[in-house]
Amino acid sequence: MTPDVLLETKGLEINFGGVIAADNVSVEIHAGKNLAIIGPNGAGKTTFLNICTGYTKPNKGSVYFCGREVTQKSPRQITRMGVARAFQIPQLFSEHTALENLLIAAAAREQRWAPFMKLGHIPERDEMMHLLELVNCAHVSDRLVNELPEGQRKLIDIAVALALRPKLLLLDEPTSGVASSEKFGVMDILTRALAEAKVTSVFVEHDMGIVEKYADEVAVWAAGAVQLRGTPQEVLEHPDVIRDVIGEEL
């Protein structure tokens, strides 16, 4: 194992009632190289993220993060080790404001248990405001998140993950639910935030334009297995990919 391998899976296998969602999946994720995962619906992309974060346990195979096995660990433990996740459907605290969502994440990161300190007064407040600015949501910081449009909720969901200062960030379709005219804007914001925080990312994406522009590497998923992996150019020009994946998108 080379030292720059952040996350590694070996021979992951799982099926749900006969449907194979992971079939001998062995993947290495390298520090500093943003990996895009593409593939048709039902190919097992979200399941892969679920297994990497301990939400789903594989039938076979194992997951290593920074060289330590985490296959049987819970999402909570894996998060503590430095893997954060943003979700396809934003997972936010609907009765808290945008800023409070981030403050809770910061308090979790810093283990702030003092029972009489106000959430709004924790030392990480400025840092969290900055993070909201970074994702262009500072102007809605005191709005309840369930009053916000889906696009902003996605960004806040990503900001919550970034608030944990992870080593690795897993993003499940960061631009789904975002109007297509805004997708590139969102990704610009996101890559800027990732670069500033020096976080490596893995993102599931359907939009090939985005993959081409923002990914360092691309992995193609189909029927629960990695069919192909390479630079965006290599992958997107591959005839199989044009036929099976890009064709479906059109």
């Binding site: 999402p75 909570r76 998060t79 997972q91 605290f93 994440a105 979790a108 919550v160 993950a161 944990l164």
Partner: peptide
């Protein structure tokens, strides 16, 4: 409101 997110914050 969201236990899943809470667990994904490491709590």
């Amino acid at each position: 409101t969201n236990e899943t997110r809470l667990e994904y914050l490491g709590i």
